[in-house]
Design a protein around this nucleic acid. Structure first.
Lengths: 231, 231
DNA sequence: GGCTTTATGTACTGGTTGGTTAATAATGGG
DNA sequence: CCCATTATTAACCAACCAGTACATAAAGCC
């Protein structure tokens, strides 16, 4: 009943008596659910074990202790989310279109990955202590800046973007708007209603975030060219 | 040693044998430290009691249970932070100056209240469940929108601000940029370095956030009038 | 087919921690 | 000055929960 089922080369179904890598992934995915929902201190190992096809013992066998498991879950969260954002093909687009696409993608991508957002929130509550432990994660994020940097430089070279805008700072701004949109839904909508978080509200917000970023970087002569409320 | 000391009308120092209100405040402030640092599930009642001049029993006497205490701490956090932002005197300023001031104030104010930010993060992790319980908090935040609304309308009437910008959405944007700056320092600086979080970096970020918001609302003719990098 | 290594299940434990019991001291009203 | 109410203490408890002891089954190797 707790043996996983696999298909071998001949197409024959057979019981895979052992599947260490599968067990690992199973645990990781259950742990991601639990931790992203309840945090590190709120997450329960027994609960994670229960959501698994295997037992609590295996968690300690593969991950050492709770904190070790948490760190792997955090890494996994970053890896998964960064994996899904590889090639937007920005280089093939004109600077304005590229930046717009990047903004809208970032906004949507954050929105589509609430578990990742929650893991990052939780990690920030813990002052990023575990993130520092992990070499892997830090290297994972540089490409984002480089892609933005490239778009920015092209735009500045063409004269559509003004000088004096830094890629890192712009990335910070785009991230802020996209992150907050997911991280603070609960409190914001509790206080101000959920009008910004309906399907329509989110679509409009997404457009306006992109518009805000564009207006920020466009050089004086080109601001007027913005589509009044998208088209 | 655990009796608080007060001064009566004659200026005479005397032992205040009982001070219920003081005990309450003492507990609340210790609890705020503990919860904002470790979260609801991570916060320890014994730890809170230890930071108090009184005993653990008193916490249950005054606040019922852990969750009750947490909810009062959350209310307290909102009340304190909203109390400190009352009169910016925006009405006395020209729209552009008023909006700039509001942005920069919001940015700085968030930065000056990390415990509040952390409480809001934690509450969002809990899906805002406790915020909904509290009638008090929700009413507390409307004035912020109204102040912004008033500045916006004046600007639009004068023609400096373009039409089609909503106060609620703009508030969301300003909040996002100001909130993220505090909530995500740990992870952002772990990944991208702390150049944005030094004194200089923060000053520049603050200016650029205000500038971004301004550029977003200014009507076409007035964008050029922005000071290139502040002055 | 033995023998070592890897993987897994069951049952348990010891410390932690939210919450309580019972007794008592101060306070204020009449 | 008595009595009800409010405030406070110290010791206690039961549940919960991270982590472990022990036994054993499967795989890989020669």
């Amino acid at each position: 009943m707790r043996r996983s089922v696999s298909v071998d080369e001949d197409g024959k179904v057979r019981q895979a008596k052992r599947d260490p890598e599968g067990v690992r992934r199973d645990i990781l995915s259950a742990a991601m659910e639990e931790f992203s929902l309840n945090g590190l201190s709120g997450g329960r190992i027994d609960e994670i074990a229960a959501r698994t096809r295997t037992s609590k013992r295996m968690i300690y066998y593969y991950f050492g202790d709770k904190e070790g498991l948490y760190e792997r879950v955090l890494e996994e969260a970053y890896a998964k989310v960064r994996g899904g954002e590889s090639d937007l093909g920005l280089d093939a687009l004109a600077p304005v279109a590229a930046l717009t696409k990047l903004c809208r993608f970032t906004f949507d991508h954050h929105r589509a990955n609430p578990a990742f957002i929650r893991m990052v929130m939780i990690e920030n509550i813990h002052h990023g202590r575990h993130l520092l432990h992990s070499e892997a994660i830090r290297g994972l994020n540089r490409p984002a800046i480089e892609a933005l940097e490239s778009v920015l430089r092209r735009g500045q070279a063409e004269g559509v973007f003004r000088a004096g805008v830094e890629a890192l700072e712009l990335h910070w701004q785009i991230s802020a708007l996209s992150f907050f949109n997911v991280s603070n839904v609960a409190t914001f909508s509790a206080i101000f209603g959920d009008s910004l978080f309906t399907a329509d509200g989110q679509e409009q917000l997404s457009r306006h975030v992109a518009e805000m970023v564009l207006r920020y970087v466009l050089s004086p002569g080109h601001v007027g060219a913005i589509s009044p409320s998208d088209g």
